[in-house]
Design a protein around this nucleic acid. Sequence first.
DNA 1: GGTAGACCTGGACGC
DNA 2: GCGTCCAGGTCTACC
Length: 271
Amino acid sequence: MERCVRYASGAVVLVTCAHHDDGLLISAHDELASYAQDEIAHCVAWMFNLDADYSAFYALADQEPRLAHCRPAGHGRLLRSPSLFEDVVKVMATTNIQWSGTKRLVLRLVEAFGAAYAEAEDVCAFPHAQTIAATDEATLRRLGWGYRSPYLLRLARGVAEGVYDLDGLRQSPMPTPALRNELLKLPGIGPYGAATLLGLLGRHDFIGVDTEAVSAVSKAFYHGRPVGEKEILAVFERWGEYKALAYWFWDWSGVQHAPITVWEGQQTEKA
DNA sequence: GGTAGACCTGGACGC
DNA sequence: GCGTCCAGGTCTACC
């Protein structure tokens, strides 16, 4: 994996992370001072969540055939961004849009406001909240952010002004429901976004219920019948604090189309 | 607390 | 080429 990282001094470096038999090999394309090396090592450790321990989840997953692949594959970690602000913005960009659109929104934001890497000006680090905060709604709309523009602007300005303490949330020991409530206060972040961000923070109690979740759970567990958040949570309730991991890494193979079903009040041509 | 409707944009699809 | 639908939801008003 290769990406731009900006460290505290403001310098932008291009970092490459590669698998190594002894762990993770991090290399930079520039010569770095020792303090910068430490900072980037911490940054990459956060991105790959290297301190996480998934042994308790694996112990449960070993007992479920559709999750038994988790331990041998080392599943559990979710790649995250260097800052929580970046992840909040990206999650906001996943809402009510297709994946190609999400990538387009983030790319345009980075091109417009990101700090360029000195050796290649077309390579940029993700912009700071302060940089986005200094722009206006019309500019964000021109970048394609549409109705999300005021949310993004409020978020960036809130972070820049210290109204939203995202660094504090990153390390917060508060219980998951309380942490979820804090995330729900962020503009543009609703139940789906909060659940996704909780997962990135290592809290897997809540499932981000989106159209994919509805479709997959409906086919696999409810014979194609329309389902809502309650039904989805009921399916994964037994996984307790690992609900989201169980959902995310569930082996859905073999789940194509449920049998044709007629349920109360509705007739279906196909399930 | 639950529900309905508005909201940007662009890709997919049917005609 | 054009029109319609809808996608890895959220917010607000209303009941």
